[in-house]
Design a protein around this nucleic acid. Sequence first.
DNA 1: AGGGTGACGATCA
DNA 2: ATGATCGCCACCC
Length: 116
Amino acid sequence: MRPRKSVKKNTSDDKTARVVRAIRAIPAGKVSSYGAVARAAGWAGAARQVVQILRKVHGLPWQRVVGSGGAIKLPGESGAEQRIRLRMEGVTFRGARVDMKQHEHKFGRSRRKSKG
DNA sequence: AGGGTGACGATCA
DNA sequence: ATGATCGCCACCC
């Protein structure tokens, strides 16, 4: 038997693809954290890789990914811009952090369409 | 191959 | 809340 390819690869590219999908799944007005995105992509513990992907892949709603607890981790002006962008999307803050109670995005579990 | 690094995260003081 | 530490993972020299 040769290794099953179509089951689940785990190349860096595939993981990246999953992270990208997770990030793109965050709607405007919502945010998620680096760690949460990593887990949603089936890659627990890869918060730092989420950052790398965030920097590498262009066209992502990067402002919607914040630190644990809603902290803005981007330094300097970039951080200021992130706040502005989020506020423009309707995200509210609780001091220096995003009000996660209201804006934390919950990722779905590969849900099939359900009957209503 | 080994060591330094980073938009991290959880924990401890 | 702040600062130090340790764990984590891939990337870069």
